[in-house]
Design a protein around this nucleic acid. Structure first.
Length: 425
RNA sequence: GGAGGGGUGGCUGAGUGGUCGAAAGCACUGGUCUUGAAAACCAGCGAGGGUAAAACCUUCCAGGGUUCGAAUCCCUGCCCCUCCGCCA
């Protein structure tokens, strides 16, 4: 959620910023609601003050043993007037609230204008593209003897699921372990284990709700509950309604979870392979930092994610997302895109974002800078470090030798029983 | 699944329907004292809105209700704890 004080102060400026994201803020509508709110709030509060004062007098009179009937008469229809004012006020407030909730975060100055992913701006490239003297296969063809089984996955679950066997499943696990070890041992992240089912408040806190309910898997249960679409949700919400001691900042968590996405609205896209699944694994980096640190922290976190790609010697590029491609809650996002020889293009493997105080405000995640200081909102940053399934794809496709064999990246061999090549069925 | 007991400030924990936004303790901050520190003593100290500052409004898990007045009474929900049963 945006800072209402800033919005009140200069809605036109905010509207201007939001245009970069392709969002049109209805300023007159907003100002109308805001004016109504102000008037009704004043009226309601005045009536409340009157009621409180009179009730206090009654209490005092009663304590002194005086007759309170004349005082009771004075109260008259105060209750009814208050009731009706309050009703109108809460209605406007609710309208205003849902209006505000639907406004995306404003983009940072460095976010390029643009409509969709075609307008994203490449910032850097790393690594040399593999020079194959054969026509590289994609990960599906490389594993089509049964290591990666979509048919059996479809039987037991449905489309957009996969079953992986033997060394392939182990490689998948090795990648996860390697990422976790790197981030905890070299980058200073605290590992955390979290639930994979969360309540609606948590999804609201990180911005998936109310606008993006269709992306989530709802769980059939007594309460409104959802499978997590990213570890960002449970991990960031650890600090919902918490006041963090400034000495504990920055908070840096790494968390491995499965992620569940309904992928509604992407029916025709990436139907081949495991690029876009209903269930995939991700190692997520989350930071909660002092507001003055968040842009530095975004850089740092992005570098931490890149370190994995470098260690795996996978060529990649970094991309600055344009306004139109930026997520609802993000102020800025840097995507890492890994080279996939099988697709002959770069594909997203990590998305690193600074949400500044947008999520923190929805969650009331705050820090206190000193004993007598007011709590202030933290800034939240997160990014994949990395998406495990897509990393697996990248390893398979970049490490193929043209004769059906796939080398194990050096840094993973310790996790693979020192195997140099995958033994796939 | 059955039976009970609870949710109060950063934390622990009192609170009879009426000057209760809330005792007390811890923590923290300022001061006195001290060569310095500790201890002791004095003072301050929840959150959101509002104001130049006040006044004022809201807030004792959440949502309803009763009442002139609710932390306190009633209903619903959520969460936690204890015991029994079941269970990886």
């Amino acid at each position: 959620m945006l800072d209402v004080k800033k919005l009140r102060a200069d809605p036109n400026e905010i509207a201007q910023l939001l245009l970069v994201k392709g969002f049109t803020l209805d300023v007159p509508l907003y100002q109308g609601m805001e004016e109504q709110r102000r008037v009704l709030q004043q009226e309601t509060e005045q009536l409340q003050a009157e009621r409180n004062a009179k009730s206090k007098l009654i209490g005092q009179a009663k304590a002194q043993g005086q007759d309170i009937t004349p005082l009771l008469a004075q109260v008259g229809d105060l209750g009814e007037r208050l009731e009706s004012a309050k009703q109108k006020f809460t209605q406007v407030q609710a309208d205003l609230q849902s209006f505000l909730q639907a406004i995306p975060n404003t983009p940072h100055d460095s976010v390029p204008a643009g409509k969709d992913e075609d307008d994203n701006v490449e910032m850097s490239r790393w690594g040399n593209l593999p020079a194959f003297n054969f026509s590289p296969k994609d990960h599906v063809d490389l594993t089509d003897q049964g290591a990666m089984d979509f048919d059996v996955a479809a039987k037991i679950s449905g489309a957009r699921f996969v079953v992986m066997h033997g060394q392939l499943a182990r490689l998948h696990r090795a990648l996860t372990q390697f990422m976790l070890d790197t981030h905890t041992q070299q980058h200073g992240y605290q590992e955390v284990y979290v639930p994979y089912i969360v309540n609606a408040e948590s999804l609201y806190g990180t911005g998936q709700l109310p606008k993006f309910a269709h992306d989530q898997f709802r769980v059939e249960s007594e309460n409104e509950a959802y499978l997590i679409s990213t570890a960002e949700v449970p991990v960031t919400n650890l600090y919902r309604n918490e006041i963090i001691n400034i000495a504990d900042l920055p908070i840096k968590h790494v968390c491995h979870t499965p992620c569940f996405r309904s992928e509604a609205g992407s029916y025709g896209r990436d139907t081949r392979g495991i690029i876009r699944q209903h269930q995939f694994e991700k190692v997520e980096l989350v930071q909660l930092v002092h507001p003055s640190e968040s842009w530095r922290a975004l850089d740092e976190l992005t570098n931490h994610a890149q370190a994995i790609l470098k260690a795996l010697e996978l060529p990649y590029r970094t991309v600055n997302l344009c306004g139109g491609d930026l997520g609802f809650a993000a102020a800025k996002t840097t995507d890492l895109e890994v080279w996939l020889p099988g697709q002959d293009r770069y594909r997203e493997i990590s998305s690193c974002s600074n949400y500044v105080d947008f999520q923190a405000r929805r969650m009331q995640a705050r820090y206190r800078s000193g004993p007598s200081a007011k709590p202030e909102l933290v800034h939240t940053i997160n990014g994949s470090g990395l998406a495990v399934g897509r990393t697996l794809v990248a390893v398979l496709e970049n490490y193929q030798d043209g004769e059906g064999k796939i080398a194990v990246p050096d840094v993973l061999r310790g996790y693979m029983g020192n195997a140099t090549h995958l033994e796939l069925p």
